[in-house]
Design a protein around this nucleic acid. Sequence first.
DNA 1: AGCACGCCGACT
DNA 2: GTCGGCGTGCTC
Length: 607
Amino acid sequence: MIVDVVFDLPVPHPFSYRVPPGLAVTPGQRVRAPLGSRARVGLVVAARDGDGETLKPLAGAAEAGPILSRSPLELTRWIAGESLSSWGSTVAALVPPAPRSATEAMPAPPEWAPGGGERPSLLTGGDREERLLARIAEEAEDRGILLVAPEIDVAAAWAGRLSATLKVPVARLDSGMADGERWSAWMALARGAVRIGIGTRSALLAPAPAPATLVLLDENDPAHKPPGPPRIHSRDVLLERARREGSRLYLTAATPSAESWWRADEGRLQRLSDGPSPWPSVSVVDVRGALRAHPLSPLLRGAMKETLAANGRVLLLVTRIGSAMACNECGFLVRCPECGIALAFSRARRELACRLCRRADPAPDTCPHCRGRQLAPFGWGTERVEQAVRAEFRRYRIVRDDAESGRGRARAAGDSGAQVVVGTRAALKAFVPRAPSLIGFITPDPILRLPDFRAGERAFSLLWAAAEKVAGRGRVVIQTQHPTHYAVRAAAEQDLAGFYKDELGFRSELGYSPFRRLCLLTIRSRTEGAGRRLAETLHRELSGLGGLTVYPPAPLGRSPRAARWQIVLKGGDDLPARLSPLLGPSRERRGDGRGIIEVEMDPVDLA
DNA sequence: AGCACGCCGACT
DNA sequence: GTCGGCGTGCTC
């Protein structure tokens, strides 16, 4: 007997081994096998007859039986192909870590029954979570439930909520749990001993007792496509799983992805929304030509005074953590000499740092361009806003809550003693006991100006979330230089459909997702010349494929140790299949222009 | 990804 | 003359 085994390595093919006498393994089972200098854990993907004299023998089984049945194993192959990631790395990311010892008995993983699929649903609206909870409560009577959350915190919160409401055990599968517990939780689901499972990305393939209901929480959250292989959004995995498994699927979102909204328009998703929920008063302040010297417009300042006088809390949202530094005399903006992007100024450390290459230099006193002394922070970062607000609202307790100040401490927003919180996006989620009754956007413009086709969706999502946060109690003030932007207008007017009409019009016109698929190739190479040669060769080969839009290679600037080039590709639904001969598992050895090619299918973040 | 070979600079 | 830099290629 010979088996093919895949490993958590960026290699495109499986490895074959001889199965020693007395060892019984099947596809879907994890094994220990010698590879290179030591034994590693891999997954058997195929078994066939043959003595395999020339092959090395397996070292043993890593588990008593298969962790994946045939159908999810096939799904992992589909995922690998669709994301152009290696099969072994894909599997490794989607099953719990193997246990130390292989002795514990394992239930046979359930096989999926094909067909009988239902149309997946898109759950939106202000009380979507309550409606989801009600459905789960009802369906848990006779269905297995699997929830996938964007982050561990969200998974933990839902686990608590579900077990409190339903009074049944909930299996947690995310990495917030110890490895052994994750494995046991998976097995408890496979055995049917527990009927509700919840986790993050690593729970996507977890067995759910049939018939199953799958749930993707906050389907528009970019965290559903975290770093590392496989480069695919959890939404795409669950849609495919539901189709193959014949299970029910709910996608929830306050502001769905444009992709999901469009699927619903096409009738491939069923919309489960209800009437409009309460909405706050949203003021849009045109700050064109203003706001250079002070972050607060008269309207926002007035709203703050009223709110504070009424004993309410204020959240001022800043959409970037740092400021850049610019010269007030000649207008020079200090940029990274290597990467060309604006350097971020940290007042506390008195230094300028580059986001891309991580270099950090002491902040200069004089303008590098005109030698003038008017070099000053540019743009409103949390530090500058906090300082300006503190000077004006001396009587109140003001705290800053951003990635820097929050590290290692309790989140400031949770501190209900603070009357004004100056924070970034994450602060929105953190308010629990005493929510703000005024949310002021210093300006969401940096998001709207992101060099990313999802900028509008990002901004809309944030503005909408803020409005939901204070709905029925308070108000929102948005200071912007783009007061007529459709994302701003739609959030102010609670016009979900209106936003997607404009957004999908724009996406369609410029050929973006969901109308065309995007792929980002990053070429890294030690030397400038080799990188350019590889990028040019690749560009020529890709252009030769035909039917794709291939943009010319663009230099990305240097990261600390390598020249980087980027090629942007556009194609149809079959883009991964078209690219696979060149970039996928069966790619041929490329002889010229050495370098490393990173493949990012359907990027969620272009910046 | 690790790890082992393999060809060019500064040292006992 | 060697030690060792990491560039290149392989792992069943």
